[in-house]
Design a binder for these strands. Structure first.
Length: 214
DNA sequence: GCAAGGATATCG
DNA sequence: GATATCCTTGCA
């Protein structure tokens, strides 16, 4: 399932905003209650109930009280499972992504920090960094918890998945351990359930910053 | 160039 | 009390 998503398109079409399209370059697989790294490890809660439902719908949650993360529910209804979409490479609607990110950042830092937040120009962020991480991706695509339960596989959905177009660059899939789950213990921390497209420059920064070893 | 610290909803 | 994160600041 994760392998099928690599290279596929994430599309958000919304009234008044140019369509935003990203090529999926990084995903992580999460299982059911057995998987100590999965949100489903405690069974179905108000937040995670959708993980136990039918496949192909969105599960969006908030991490650290601040960032959204987009998952695709997988497996048969009754069995929990999801694929976290960690990064996409912007393909279309790049300015809309940039705008969405600036807006969210401005709102987020309005509180608490001083008036000199605008010192660094957000226009300087390179295209390939706009959605190179699960939190960044949701900022750029304006995905929040209200999308939980939405069907990602219907052509008519504003937020949806589409197959990679013919002639698209072939992904170079590489499996690695998942990120930021040291609390789960072995064997879960070492299982290579994270899949990246090795050729992409939009992989999340977690790769390059071993700080994530936690 | 880093490392450190902060923001803060949801769960155990 | 910890977290499936990211950004800014402060110091080398």
């Amino acid at each position: 399932m994760a392998a099928a998503l690599l290279g596929a398109r994430l599309v958000h079409e919304r009234l008044g905003v140019p369509p935003r399209i990203g090529r999926i370059v990084e995903v992580e697989a999460y299982g059911g209650p057995d998987d100590r790294a999965s949100h489903a490890r405690a069974g179905a809660t108000a937040r995670t109930a959708v993980m136990f439902g039918p496949a192909g719908v969105a599960y969006v949650y908030l991490v650290y009280g601040m960032y959204h993360c987009l998952n695709v529910v997988c497996g048969p209804a009754g069995e929990a499972g999801a694929i976290l979409i960690r990064a996409v490479e912007p393909v279309e609607g790049i300015e809309a992504m940039r705008d969405a990110r600036s807006t969210r950042l401005a709102g987020r830092h309005r509180r608490g920090s001083g008036p000199s937040v605008g010192g660094r120009r957000r226009r300087d962020v390179p295209d390939q960094m706009l959605a190179s991480g699960p939190g960044r991706l949701c900022d750029a695509f304006e995905v929040d918890v209200s999308f939980t339960g939405a069907d990602l596989c219907a052509r008519s959905s504003p937020l949806r998945l589409e197959p990679s177009p013919p002639g698209d660059r072939t992904p170079n899939p590489v499996w690695t351990p998942r990120v930021g789950i040291s609390y789960a213990g072995e064997p879960w921390t070492s299982l290579p359930w994270r899949l990246i497209d090795q050729g992409s420059s939009s992989i999340s920064t977690a790769v390059h910053h071993p700080r994530q070893l936690r």
